[in-house]
Design a binder for these strands. Structure first.
Length: 505
RNA sequence: GGCGCGUUGGUCAAUCGGCUAAGACGCCUCCCUUUCACGGAGGAAUGACGGGUUCGACUCCCGUACGUGCUACCA
């Protein structure tokens, strides 16, 4: 069998969403598992939808996840160029070849004529008429015009497209790697435009030609492409490449968490979670969309979560390293049905990966979330990371969970102390801070011993003074052990915080 | 409307004719922790519906319903 070659073929039109990233992942895993090549091909045949920066953005997203293509516009292999706009000259000849063999024809219909046709043939039973075998005989094309007329139109530089001539009464079928046997009736498929009037191919011609020329062996794409599969199948056949056709797999959709339908950027905005892999700013509207990366996701967690959204290994294991995914993944085990995206579960994955992460690395990752000007030594950050990591689902939780390591906190829960405050407690803290003043070995154990001794000496219950102490140091009822916190923030700051609060009571 | 595809707890899902239907997320209770979290122990919650086939069906077949995708000189 020939070397496995797969491709991810996005249009550079905007942010890369979950569905797109998952398509990349499955392609990548499949390629690596079979020792094949992972190709990135930019499908920029629609010049009206071109968005500046979108291609670079795609590269950035793949890089963040460590899924670098083996061949791409940045790393030319033997099958370039990898940008369809730069391959424009290639497609025309194949379209012409199809015209010669009788599988395609020139069509001169203006946009107005097409619209007119759709209105004319529209009925209640057929709300969207197709340019098909019946309709094409009433349109302006090389099937209805005489050769002389066609010649005249060419000479007059009349804009034209090349349309595929769909056969009548045929059944086209193929085996999808996920869904099995699928078949279509050609009477229900229209004469797709293959080559546009600007000389650019449409997706239909371009995928087939490029997949052939790039020797793609397996083609994975979203389920939304299923209805046009017969067009592609026939093209492979008419171009005489049937034996080289890749195996197809149509991936299920990723659905919105509530209600029904395909997950869209809007849902993320509405429900408060990212949909794009990384931050994306639309150059035209200036609209900014937060990505998983900037939201505080670790790429390993993001990938793990994505892999299991529509695929299952069949085992109980849920945490997979990229190597394990490559080892375990199989396209046949991808589900047929769409999966609703669950942000809570996504955060759970991230939480797991944060726990696995070394404190040293976490400290570096968390740095961008510190909101104070002051710089802290890295070993301080490492200690903080170790103390609060288990409370974080996102890297961005770092601040909410550990801000008091970097600033004197506002006392949110002052009332909780006030309610049960009395002179005994006030005396406790005053005498304890005095005792603390002479402590030289400022460590967790010493602090705890000192505190316990003071509790015994005053006859108070430990719990009565523990909670106030926590609130004095943290501002609220949360966070790591109080003596850990005190030990880390240091003597001066600890005493300062206690005194500040005691004064307010 | 037509065509395609899909349908196991709230969500992700296991099962490839033997089910008293795994597991995970989330939720609830309890334990641990004089905070929160982590961890531990429990709990509630599932085969869209109707027909077949079969000793036996969540698993196979057929209908129905529902959902979703497509139906552009967009991908």
């Amino acid at each position: 069998m020939s070397r496995v070659r797969v491709r991810f073929a996005p249009s550079p039109t905007g942010g890369l969403h979950l569905g797109g990233m998952r398509t990349v992942l499955y392609n990548y895993l499949f390629a690596k598992k079979h020792g094949g090549d992972f190709v990135l091909r930019i499908e920029d045949t629609d010049q009206t939808r071109f968005v500046a920066g979108a291609e670079e953005y795609i590269f950035n997203c793949l890089e963040w996840c460590g899924m670098t293509p083996d061949e791409s516009s940045r790393k030319e292999g033997a099958y370039g160029p990898y940008r369809q706009s730069e391959r424009k000259a290639i497609y025309g000849q194949y379209a012409e070849q199809l015209v010669k063999s009788g599988h395609a024809y020139y069509a001169f219909d203006t946009p107005e004529a097409l619209e007119q046709m759709r209105i004319q043939y529209k009925t209640e039973k057929n709300p969207s008429p197709m340019y098909d075998a019946k309709v094409r005989q009433y349109m302006s094309n090389s099937l209805t015009c005489s050769p002389e007329e066609v010649q005249r139109l060419f000479e007059a530089k009349t804009p034209y497209v090349i349309r595929m001539k769909m056969p009548e009464n045929e059944t086209v079928s193929f085996t999808d790697m996920i869904r099995g046997e699928i078949s279509f009736d050609t009477n229900l498929v229209d004469d797709k435009v293959l080559l546009k009037s600007d000389g650019m191919p449409t997706y239909h011609l371009a995928v087939v030609v490029d997949d052939y020329l790039m020797k793609i062996t397996h083609a994975f794409r979203g389920e939304e492409w299923l209805p046009s599969a017969p067009v592609h199948l026939l093209l492979w056949q008419y171009l005489g490449w049937k034996d080289a056709m890749p195996q197809w797999a149509h991936l299920p959709l990723i659905l919105k968490p509530d209600g029904n339908g395909k997950l869209s950027k809007r849902d993320g905005d509405r429900l408060g979670f990212p949909v794009f892999a990384m931050n994306w700013q639309d150059p035209k509207t200036g609209e900014h969309t937060e990505g998983f990366k900037e939201k505080g996701f670790l790429p390993e967690a993001f990938i793990n979560m994505l892999a299991l959204l529509g695929w299952s290994s069949g085992k109980e294991q849920e945490l997979f390293s990229i190597e394990e995914l490559i080892e375990t993944f199989s396209i046949e085990q991808v589900h047929k049905g769409g999966a609703k995206f669950d942000y809570e579960k996504a955060k759970w994955f991230n939480h797991c990966y944060i726990q696995k992460q070394q404190n040293e690395q976490l400290a570096v990752l968390m740095q961008s979330f510190i909101k104070t000007e002051k710089k802290y030594p890295s070993d301080y950050l490492v200690k903080v990371a170790g103390l609060i990591k288990e409370r974080c689902h996102l890297l961005s939780d770092f601040w909410a969970q550990g801000h008091f390591f970097f600033e004197t906190p506002a006392i949110e829960e002052l009332q909780a102390i006030k309610d049960k405050w009395n002179t005994d407690k006030a005396a406790f803290f005053i005498t304890w801070t005095v005792a603390l003043n002479s402590v030289t070995d400022w460590s967790h154990d010493i602090l705890e011993q000192s505190f316990n001794a003071q509790v015994v000496a005053t006859g108070l219950k430990k719990g009565e003074v523990m909670l106030p102490l926590r609130i004095m140091l943290v501002g609220g009822k949360y966070g790591p052990g109080v003596f850990d916190i005190a030990a880390l923030i240091g003597k001066e700051e600890t005493l300062y915080r206690i005194q500040q609060v005691v004064q307010q009571l």
